[in-house]
Design a protein around this nucleic acid. Sequence first.
DNA 1: CCGCATCCTTTAGGATACTG
DNA 2: CAGTATCCTAAAGGATGCGG
Lengths: 114, 114
Amino acid sequence: MRKSGFRNGIGGDQVECAHGELPYRIGDKWTAHVLRALQGGRRRFTELRAGLPGVTAKVLTETLRAMEREGAVSREAFAENPPRVEYELTARGRKLLGLLDLCCDWARENLVET
Amino acid sequence: MRKSGFRNGIGGDQVECAHGELPYRIGDKWTAHVLRALQGGRRRFTELRAGLPGVTAKVLTETLRAMEREGAVSREAFAENPPRVEYELTARGRKLLGLLDLCCDWARENLVET
DNA sequence: CCGCATCCTTTAGGATACTG
DNA sequence: CAGTATCCTAAAGGATGCGG
């Protein structure tokens, strides 16, 4: 059984547009928001958290870890005190953001009429 | 707080591409598959079920009911014995399918390289 | 055949407290 | 500051059985 290019959201598996194993999480609650937040460039954990009202540290961490595993963001930790960690979109992350933009364009064009 | 054009999948709420209240379910487990299955035209319940291995009657019914509420499919029941029910994409359903196609195109172009 | 009712498991996600 | 560790709830989804 083939898999779609998304880990969840839009299809699960077995949808035709499948391409091996390239799980991209985008349909969960926070990934899209993180992509947006990182659109402007490198951000540290606290900045992300402040820009995403409602997210808890636990869930934000989980989201970022997943995105890192999937190659959408890069993580850099500095051995300072107090610690500092910065996140940045990778090329793949920027591509994901491109898809998100496509979806938003589509919505703008098609969902306006009731 | 603004809402995105999707009920779940891709962002929840608060994503920029918001347009009032147009809840379209697409990020759940089966909606995208149903859209594909109805791409070829009108299908009856049993056909859909057979074409979606793994789905239970309960969940397929729930999915179709939700899609019907959201105006993505139309449902026609025939008062025969045994009963027959047919589903078909509406114009809005075809538009949703268009979005799904966009996403698949995107995946085809961008997610092939590991 | 279609699909509702019931029960159950799994998972996402939130609340809170604590630590290097 | 940037997280882990626990615990908890709600919701999605699966299993099974019944009914018009």
